[in-house]
């Protein structure tokens, strides 16, 4: 697979390490928990449960042998086709703006 890095251009996927579903960017906020049990459930879901779709999947890739940036790669996991690539920091900032 070739990943179109937003800053560096086309890079071989072998330069990257894979973490998983980009939903992991959205960690539950302990400060906002109404009840400790709810927080436990929220963190259990966050750490262990996955949607694992067969199709379009947003996922986190780390450019370990490159510029060490985290990317959000949108990929079709049934065909290995890469649809879009963004910097994870941009995705995170955008989601914060949205929630405000």
């Amino acid at each position: 697979m070739i990943i179109q890095h937003p800053l560096l251009g086309a890079r071989d996927a072998a330069e990257f390490t894979y973490l998983g579903d980009a939903a992991m960017l959205m960690r539950p906020d302990p400060a906002n928990a109404s009840h400790p049990d709810k927080l436990m459930t929220a963190f259990h879901d966050y750490v262990h449960l996955r949607d694992n779709p067969a199709g379009i999947h947003k996922e986190l890739w780390f450019h370990e042998q490159g510029d060490r940036s985290w990317l959000v790669v949108t990929r079709n996991v049934s065909t290995h086709e890469i649809i879009s690539v963004e910097l994870a920091s941009d995705v995170k900032k955008a989601s914060k703006r949205k929630s405000k």
């Binding site: 071989d12 998983g20 694992n52 067969a54 996922e59 990929r75 996991v77 049934s78 065909t79 290995h80």
Partner: peptide
């Protein structure tokens, strides 16, 4: 291969 996949084939690395 190390990434989520439902394709019954892998990659060269």
């Amino acid at each position: 291969d190390g990434y989520n996949s439902y394709a019954q084939r892998g990659n060269l690395p």
